[in-house]
Amino acid sequence: MDGNGLVIETKGLTKRYGSRAAVDGLDLEVARGEIFGFLGPNGAGKTTTIRMLLGLLEPDAGEVRILGRQLRRARGEVLPLIGALVEMPAFHPYLSGRDNLRALCRVLGLEDGAADSVLDLVGLGADGRRRYSTYSLGMKQRLGVAAALLGDPRLLILDEPANGLDPIGIIEMRDLLRRLARSGITVFLSSHILGEVSLLCDRVAIIREGRLVLVERVDDLLRRETVFVLDTPDPEAAERVLAGLSYVKRIWREEDRRVMVEAPGVSGNGIVRPLVQASVAVDGLRRREASLEEIFLTTVQEAEVSS
């Protein structure tokens, strides 16, 4: 069925609203068993893309293949294999969370037991019998993920699943998705926050204004970050030592004892060793967390340089 091992494949996927393209010639490839992050700022076209992946929206151009089959031709066979949470979770307010899932079980031809097991998976077991209208945003989000998990889907598509979750909820969600991926499910999730997916995803695609900016392994993406954060009790001495290094482009102070060092193409060693040799104490060194905007800027600059 999925000959080339790709679970999602889009070619030239395009959706226009009026004269503006919300999604513009998108080519994506997601391999089986991957946790794939789909990143972009608000309005970038993530939800629009996901709607097209699920056949909820007709593309104006391009095609979608899921598990090797053309979505347009094989909707009926392909879509039942996908569990999805699109945009905000959407359930009947007057039913309990559990009854909402039981209603879905009937549509999918599953036993009620399936509802209870996915509720436990997402940590809603204790609140399953409360009315949906009394749920917090985080609980609604979990219920949305639970619904997506009904029927053992082979592909999970989640639109901003961390929305509304508290920090502990985000960690639990991350653990859950990792466990699912280990069991062979492919996970495709969108987010507008790089930090949210960098700990979880194998690869990310970044889109902006409907266009693909880059697709890269997360490790490589993080290594692009050229600014180091140095914590030291003696910032003046550290600045003096670092200023003498040819590969350090820029140095500035962010807090009293925190020095920022821009040094492209250098490992952490290249910063720490000269400091230690000069007997400057180092409390800690790490790469700064890259923001999406910075990645856009550097990518655009690179594109300009190479053209």
């Binding site: 699920l54 009926g76 996908i82 959407a90 359930f91 307010p93 549509v107 619904a147």
Partner: peptide, 17 residues
């Protein structure tokens, strides 16, 4: 009407119904 206000239809349509 509740299908319009809650959007719960998406979940079913996304499964190929």
């Amino acid at each position: 009407g509740i299908e319009f206000s809650s959007g719960s239809l998406r979940v079913v349509l996304g499964r190929g119904v």
